[in-house]
Design a protein around this nucleic acid. Structure first.
Lengths: 121, 121
DNA sequence: ATATCATATGAGTAGTTACTCATATGTATC
DNA sequence: GATACATATGAGTAACTACTCATATGATAT
């Protein structure tokens, strides 16, 4: 005989209803979760990590960032747009040059915390 | 007439050779960059953020996590594997149940730092 | 204005990812 | 043993992403 369509959800009841309820009370609203994961996601790419690290040291133009990373200016420019959209970097125009720097102290903290984690592995 | 094939790299020379050299000295080795961005990337997904948050509050079984998030057990299990592979979570087996918890204090710090950043926007 | 150069951006694409669905594994209970 | 259930996992897929290439913008210099 065929087993009835198994729903891939928990059967009958919670394993520990109290714990689940307790966590549910503390869980953050969806938009914050999204914002948080978006923030981490921006740092979740090696090219952007390099850019952020570089900018945490010096204000740099697109051209020098590209030289530093050994990639194309186009690739850097695309990633800078991502960082700009997330307000992680700021820029200053001077003639045809555009100088980028980190916009946000928090991001530096977050980045450094991540670095500390990696250094201690 | 056709312009010669433009290389999308910086022409002639650095804009600021000194700054680039200074940053280059401090830049981290490739494997650390990769590890760092991988760590951020793991937290760069809303489902995993929710799981990590939940586990930062309570040790939970797969089933209860799924209930809490309102997703399938399969989806949770797949994401737990990702978290396991990155050594962010630990698990304890008890019969057919598997209880997950955060493995690493650092990750909690990193997560909290991100949360602080988001809370202050 | 014409040419040159720094940067930005759109289209296209190869690679990745997070899910669903089906199935497997492993444990407890009958 | 057989069944039931918790979890894990493989295949397949739709959505996304980071790049390349071509082109656009906008500034400086001739």
């Amino acid at each position: 005989m065929k087993s009835k369509l198994k729903k891939d959800t928990c059967e009958i009841t919670y394993v520990d209803r109290k714990k689940v309820a307790s966590v549910r009370k503390k869980i953050k609203p969806e938009y914050k979760i999204q914002l948080l994961s978006d923030t981490f996601k921006v740092l979740g790419d090696p090219t952007r990590v390099k850019i952020v690290f570089a900018l945490s040291q010096e204000e740099l133009c697109v051209c020098d960032i590209a030289k530093l990373l050994g990639t194309t200016k186009s690739a850097v420019s695309h990633q800078l747009r991502v960082l700009r959209n997330m307000r992680l970097v700021r820029y200053r125009k001077n003639g045809k040059m555009v100088y980028y720097s980190l916009d946000d102290e928090h991001i530096k903290n977050l980045f450094d915390e991540g670095l500390r984690h990696v250094e201690e592995l």
